[in-house]
């Protein structure tokens, strides 16, 4: 029985949470409005702005691109990140400490600098298609989440289990897939989701790597907002939030949500 909280503390906390949740509720309301301008509370309920998203070809195209990039970048990051996370916890002694730091660099280096630097090298290399550069940038951008989340799962993995499997005659590669990976499954799922969302939401890297015909959803939203002030963007935002809720439900099922708080 901890001592009662000071009512002033509770009051401030309530205000902070209203501040956090309020704007999201307002977006939801605005997206359902029947008017051609943004308003809240909505005047007349309608889903027309949700339909409008798919009538604008730029939204259709960028949604597809964003999901493609997010999915491919996440898969690539898993393919290179899982072995790296495994190496970092299994062979910690033989690897230099800076290697761990290297994998958090994409978070430390300002994203906008990273995006600009990529643009410059693409321009210098001249050959690389913009989509490839976008994909490469996003892969590196989400890599820290993969390495960190899977590393966290592995840190509670007892490697003597792996040794037990090997001693029972299972070859190392097979052991990794049949013993290690299933035991960090929840971590892999969380890493996938976190990486996917990070890529999907990215602005600063994509900003420089969008060209004729290729753009991502957040960049398209920015462009749309600067020209139109209708509820379409509110509707897109709601769709993205629904997706986020879905992802959070999956994480909740597999790991418990407190995992995300770490």
């Amino acid at each position: 029985m901890t001592p009662r909280l000071n009512p002033a503390v509770v009051a401030v906390a309530v205000l902070v949470y209203l501040f956090l949740v309020g704007p999201l509720v307002i977006i939801l309301g605005a997206s359902l409005s029947d008017t051609t301008y943004l308003t809240f509370p909505p005047q007349g309920l309608s889903l027309r702005w949700f339909e409008n998203i798919f009538e604008i070809s730029a939204f259709r195209r960028t949604i597809v691109t964003s999901f493609q990039v997010a999915f491919l970048a996440t898969m690539l990051a898993l393919v290179i990140g899982v072995p790296a996370a495994y190496a970092l916890s299994r062979y910690r002694v033989q690897l230099p400490p800076w290697l761990g730091t290297l994998f958090v660099l994409p978070i430390i280096v300002p994203e906008i600098v990273f995006g600009f630097a990529l643009l410059k090298s693409v321009a210098a290399g001249a050959g690389a298609p913009i989509f490839v550069a976008l994909l490469a940038g996003h892969t590196v951008l989400v890599l820290p989440y993969v390495v960190r989340v899977i590393g966290a799962s592995l840190s509670s993995f007892d490697f003597s289990i792996e040794e037990a499997a090997v001693s029972l005659g299972s070859p190392p590669m097979k052991t990794f897939f049949t013993i290690v990976l299933p035991n960090v499954r929840a971590g892999v799922i969380a890493a996938f989701i976190l990486a996917f969302i990070t890529s999907l939401n990215d602005v600063s890297v994509s900003l420089f790597l969008t060209g004729p015909g290729i753009s991502t959803l957040p960049i398209q939203i920015l462009a749309h907002v600067e020209q139109f002030f209708d509820p379409t963007v509110a509707s897109v935002s709601v769709l993205l939030m629904v997706l986020t809720v879905g992802f959070m439900a999956i994480v909740e099922r597999t790991l418990g949500l407190t995992f995300l708080a770490k």
Partner: peptide, 24 residues
């Protein structure tokens, strides 16, 4: 083994992030 397993990710970060940023 540790080096081999972490090599792809290490090279990706160096090649895609470290070098371009250093060039800038």
């Amino acid at each position: 083994a540790g080096w081999l397993l972490s090599a792809p990710a290490t090279l990706a970060v160096i090649g895609i992030l470290v070098v371009p940023v250093a060039v800038v």
